[in-house]
């Protein structure tokens, strides 16, 4: 529930007059919840910034966290989530940093047996709750984008396409091949064929522990796509278990050349190159 303008005004005064006390108590509570993993000087700076942020939002007339005067405060909260996420704190630890403000507020509100004070506390703690939820939300968003970035980096790292011989490129696949990775590898392989004008490609799956239907489909589609472009693919390094799975799954490798090892595949390709005089 949003605050009334009158409440916002009163809270602005309250935060201003107790600024020092609030910041000190808040810093103390946060330091304890983070078990000294951040220096109290740094936390001191953060909490006093936030305390000022809340105060300015209230004095600007913000009755809810989404209001214009609270823009600055929201930016501060996102920034907090951002640094907490990157420093490796978990979601609870991040949100607790904001929730602790309520405890500090309760102490400065004065006589709690007074009904008006209690109403004020309920109102302001509602506001702080929304701020904490907002922090939690942005924490999750930031973590998600971190994960997405890392996944992408991992894809980049794990898909080398190497030139093996004049007119022959190879992709040594290592590790589990999920559908997304298979797709990236295959697109890159095809692009490398064009860039190096290599009519032969060897897909070596020695380092792949398992092949499911989807991955096999991706490999097959790549072979067909390469043919459409005018290049031949050879699959090498199929391990016995994978051969069993391929047959059990009923996947047709058809007329696609398969070789036991990368060396065999290369030998096969070179003899073909000589034959056709390319």
């Amino acid at each position: 529930m949003p605050l009334s303008p009158d409440e916002a005004r009163r809270f602005a005064v309250l935060l201003e007059s107790h600024a020092e006390q609030l910041t000190a108590r808040w810093t103390e509570l946060v330091t304890r919840s983070l078990r000294n993993r951040l220096s109290s000087a740094e936390l001191q700076r953060q909490t006093s910034d936030l305390q000022r942020g809340f105060q300015q939002a209230f004095s600007g007339g913000a009755t809810d966290l989404g209001d214009g005067p609270a823009d600055e405060l929201r930016a501060q909260l996102s920034e907090l989530s951002n640094s907490r996420a990157r420093q490796g704190f978990n979601a609870t630890e991040t949100a607790v940093s904001i929730y602790a403000f309520k405890d500090a507020l309760l102490e400065v509100l004065g006589d709690q047996s007074d009904a008006a004070t209690l109403r004020d506390y309920v109102a302001i703690s509602g506001f702080v709750d929304r701020a904490a939820l907002f922090t939690f939300d942005s924490y999750v968003r930031i973590r998600e984008s971190l994960i997405a970035d890392q996944t992408e980096q991992l894809l980049e790292l794990s898909t080398p396409v190497v030139k093996l011989w004049e007119g022959v490129v190879a992709v040594p696949l290592v590790g589990t091949l999920d559908s997304a990775r298979a797709q990236v590898v295959m697109e890159r392989l095809l692009q490398t064929l064009v860039d190096t004008s290599s009519p032969y490609a060897i897909i070596d799956i020695t380092g792949v522990p398992a092949v499911d239907t989807q991955v096999a489909q991706h490999i097959l589609k790549t072979v067909v796509a390469a043919r459409l472009m005018g290049a031949d693919c050879i699959i090498s390094g199929i391990r016995p278990q994978i051969a069993q799975t391929i047959v059990a799954l009923g996947i047709e490798f058809g007329d696609i050349a398969t070789k036991a090892s990368l060396a065999d595949a290369l030998r096969h390709v070179i003899s073909r190159t000589k034959q056709s005089g390319r």
Binding site: V194, P199, L228
Partner: peptide, 19 residues
């Protein structure tokens, strides 16, 4: 090429080269 494969068009009878 990837799109044609997905589309189901394998262009039988056409010979292809990279360039």
């Amino acid at each position: 090429a990837i799109t044609l494969v997905e589309l189901g068009l394998s262009l039988p009878g056409i010979r292809t080269a990279l360039n």
